[in-house]
Design a protein around this nucleic acid. Structure first.
Lengths: 231, 231
DNA sequence: TTCCTTAATTGACATTTATCAATTCGTGCG
DNA sequence: CGCACGAATTGATAAATGTCAATTAAGGAA
């Protein structure tokens, strides 16, 4: 494994404060895997074999029911996913697939559970991480229930803009169809939402969006610190 | 405190396996409070003072943004709420108010955090509880994104029917306006959804709903074990 | 009981969102 | 380079949901 990958993984909140021996054991018992885009990593309803860490690429968490499908989250590097299922050995409520060529560290679930029992600091970090996951889910639920599709897009753009360091042009970072599913709308309606935001200082051009009038966009989006700012 | 209340609280997943001394200290440092209906217990954006346990009555968790409001959860006895915020000393993402006269045990947040540090079994129980909360939130998000309003109502009825022991008539348990907000729709649309379900074996009469044709209702609702069955 | 207040329902209409179809755009491959 | 394929956009229409207004139903207080 590359040294900078290791450092990035070590820097994860999930491992902050854990003993060096705990961390090295977890990583050494795990293994890296490369996947092309479109590979199913996790299926709904199955039990977890590995805790996953996206080191490179992009992973989509999605869910289906009665023939419909939606995207719940996009997992960028460096982040873990399916922690809750691994800890409780519970069936996956979400499926996962690669959207881009991705390198993923897979740590055997049994190792994670053993490490939790052995290292109190790791358990503390896990409590913090689960708290974060829970609160992100609540924020997503509020976003979905309290805002229209165009408002969700506007606020997503504001969050991205900020996360990317307030650039002149921000990168969308995934196909628009994926963004649409993530925001809980159809691709057609995402197009119309982008069109509607032209009147509020947003210009889309392919995979990039230019924010020409931040105040106008914020005026329309009405961002809410409890919804749009992480802890 | 009544003995049966104490027993019910002790039986909470959150306290399963914790040392007797941990439990008694938490409860003794806490205190009971009675509230009439409609009392604001928690405000969004504030920091947690107490971990709450609903021992009696009914509490609504709700959230607002940009002038809109929605219900995220109804907390029935005996259940805790705002655990995640208490553990991390994080601002509340949800507000809480009583819907019925309620008795609530309030445990100082500082006590909870101290107990976590002192009792490993308590921390384990907390990991399990946070996992559950997270997964419930994910289920709610899937419900919201993958189903129409009428389908959410149909599946809610199926879950209630089962939870109440498959009775001939099930109790709705709250005002319809509250149920509407919980299901992410307006009271008007809830009325229409109930009307639509008459064709699928459901008869509403005031605070009760009669399921005359379970198969028909299930055929319409298309319940999903990953969505409608708890772990 | 009767009155009064609020919840619930119903209807008419507006808005939002989804669906289907038809182009257009963009990118990668031959 | 041009072609081919999938993504994205646009238009037309339908379905779902929200809003406003009016009416009915239900529950609590005098």
């Amino acid at each position: 494994m590359r040294h900078e990958d290791m450092a990035a993984i070590r820097a994860l909140r999930l491992f902050s404060g854990v003993r060096e021996s705990t961390f090295t054991q977890l990583v050494q018992r795990g293994f890296f895997h490369r996947f092309p885009p479109g590979v199913a990593l996790i299926r709904e309803g199955e039990r977890p074999d590995f805790l996953h860490v996206v080191v490179n690429g992009l992973v989509e968490m999605y869910a289906t029911s009665a023939g419909r499908e939606t995207t719940l989250e996009l997992v960028h590097p460096v982040r873990t996913f399916i922690l809750a299922a691994v800890l409780g050995d519970l069936v996956h409520l979400q499926a996962a697939r690669t959207l881009q060529p991705s390198r993923i560290l897979m740590i055997p679930a049994e190792q994670v559970r053993a490490a939790v029992a052995a290292d109190g600091a790791f358990m503390q970090a896990i409590v913090a991480e689960l708290t974060r996951n829970y609160r992100d889910a609540v924020r997503n639920l509020k976003d979905q229930k309290l805002r229209t599709g165009t408002e969700r897009l506007a606020n997503w753009l504001l969050r991205q803009h900020r996360a990317q360091g307030d650039p002149a042009r921000l990168e969308i970072g995934c196909e628009k169809r994926t963004l649409a599913a993530r925001l809980g709308m159809t691709p057609e309606n995402l197009s119309r939402a982008f069109a509607a935001l032209r009147a509020h200082g947003v210009n889309v051009q392919g995979a990039w969006a230019e924010v020409t009038d931040l105040d106008a966009l914020a005026g329309f989006a009405r961002p809410d610190p409890l919804l749009d700012v992480e802890d």
